[in-house]
Simulated scan of single mutants.
Amino acid sequence: MTRIAMDARMLGEGGTGVSTYARSLAAALVRIADAPLVVRSDGARRARLLRALPPGARRLVPGGGHGGISEGLVGRDIFRVAQVHFDLYGRPLPLRAPGPPGIMHWTYPVPLRLLGWRNVYTVHDAIPLDQPDLTPINVRRHARLLRAIMRDAAAIVTVSDDARGAIAAATGCDPAFVANCAQPVILPCEPPPPPAEFAPGSYFLFCGSIEPRKNLARLAAAHRASGTALPLLIAGPDGWRAEEVTAAIAAGGGHVVRLPYQGRDALIGLVAHARALLFPSLAEGFGLPVAEAMALGTAVMTSAGGALAETAGGAALLVDPQDIAAMAGAIADLGRNDALVADLAERGRVRAADFSLDRFAARLRRFYDGLPAPRAT
């Protein structure tokens, strides 16, 4: 069986979609690989520039695993050093690992490559390249980084057909070089109850980072215009330009409640017991909150077109995210039409089956089996 490794860079406890993806990938690798490996850093931070200066390969040594994977390969501060190395030389930092080569799956476009291995990189979206006003990422550097990792990569992985097309168009690569393996939804068997002050079905919910891309100012205005008596709860951490988004929401008034930090279990409980999830984001690579809400049997309103409509797969109420009146009408319908809410919940459960861990693992296995032979180094 071919050795398969992934990086630990995003295997934290954070609630971002990228971190959730990394944890899901680890869970899938445990199912499909005999002895998966995780590449991690020892966390040292001193003299980063000096360690990045030598142009040669760094060596990884055997070490403990992480994120549910028992075996690991460890390098000294490799993730931070790689960023400085890329700024100096414009190419990924090469790594050498003991033992036979295999497949190295990087969960993010990090400037690292494992020599002799088939390196694949998950690129979650093309937003920094085709909608740069919606992200704080340095567009020029990100474009250089993608070109650099693509030169030696065996393939690029992404999470939707929409993202696949956007990545190919933005980078000029062959669309066949980018594979869509989607993203799984992993949830507890029994979601916890919502907070005591919110009865099941008595609120609408948005969950995600507070930033312009999430379209919260328009959502709050649409909620106010809908005339619904149900409050809109907003659960998520501050993101890029959160202060101005929060100020715009507050200036409009209405029954909008910004919740304090919610742990993973509490957030799942909020989603599971909401009247509906409202997620009219302006741009996403996949839209994990939509898939999770459907899996939990919660009705969803989300954006028409793009990755969100693809993920919804006909099982959500779709709206133009730029049209406040259209969103207001959809919110009003969700607030008063029990039959609509029940129908969306049922269709959502069916659609969410496509995002099970088993199906994700099967897609990954087919993807790995179809990779070209490793390049000579």
Rank of each mutant, 00 (worst) to 15 (best):
A168D: 03
I127F: 02
E197T: 14
L282I: 02
D323F: 04
F79D: 05
F198N: 05
R59S: 14
R351N: 14
D77R: 11
A274R: 10
P54Q: 06
G297Y: 00
A35P: 09
A304S: 14
P188I: 11
F360D: 10
L93H: 07
I78R: 02
P280N: 04
G236M: 11
G335D: 08
P191T: 11
A328R: 10
L187V: 07
G305W: 06
R144E: 13
A126H: 06
R164H: 09
L60A: 02
A229W: 04
A373N: 00
R275I: 11
G17F: 02
S356F: 00
G201N: 12
Q322E: 14
M301Y: 10
M150W: 00
V18C: 00
D358H: 01
R164I: 07
P237C: 05
R46S: 14
P132V: 08
M327R: 07
D162S: 15
D87Q: 07
A222L: 13
G14E: 09
D369M: 10
G370N: 12
D161F: 00
V30K: 15
A235N: 08
E211T: 11
R351S: 00
G370E: 11
W106N: 11
T20E: 07
A316E: 06
D125V: 05
T311S: 03
F86K: 07
T298W: 09
L29D: 10
H105P: 08
